[in-house]
Design a protein around this nucleic acid. Structure first.
Lengths: 74, 74
DNA sequence: TTTAATATAAGCAAATTTGCTTATAATTAA
DNA sequence: TTAATTATAAGCAAATTTGCTTATATTAAA
């Protein structure tokens, strides 16, 4: 990640994702396994350490049974 | 992009982005220049050829003066 | 507390995106 | 039609994400 990147957006996104995932009682491992991505990706994404691609977001939203929109609703 | 990736989401996302951008009378070049990304990225993104990071989406939404949510509203 | 489950951390290779560039095609304006 | 603007295309290096792995820390349950 470029050093000039404003991380607030990524951190807020991650927090929102985590909130929704926890609300649905789904572990990082379950989510990761179900959509075929690595736990480490979910972990890093939730902590704002990763600028994931929109396709991963789409898969995550799908498994969490929310619209991708909702993951950006913060 | 992995060969198994379902491209429909990326293509739909791109179309929606293009629709919004054109509605606002903003060229790919203007958008790209304004948020410091390459025109080729915008072009590829709009055609669903690219799984851009959410941070780029955030920047794009910001310049287009829409919520990131709106880019996923399709 | 002790155990089990969950989450965070970090390193490395492979895959992908991004920046940069040049060229061509398509669209719009004159 | 012609010129100008805008969009698409493609190749390459650099940067970043992702997959894979092992290890540690935190949280929840017994």
């Amino acid at each position: 990640m470029g050093y000039l990147r404003d991380k607030k957006f990524l951190i807020d996104f991650g927090k929102n994702l985590k909130r929704i995932r926890v609300e649905k009682n789904i572990s990082q491992a379950e989510l990761a396994y179900s959509i075929n991505v690595e736990i480490s990706q979910i972990s890093r994404l939730e902590r704002g350490q990763l600028n994931s691609g929109i396709y991963s977001v789409f898969l995550i939203a799908k498994y969490l049974k929310v619209s991708p929109k909702e993951l950006f609703d913060f």
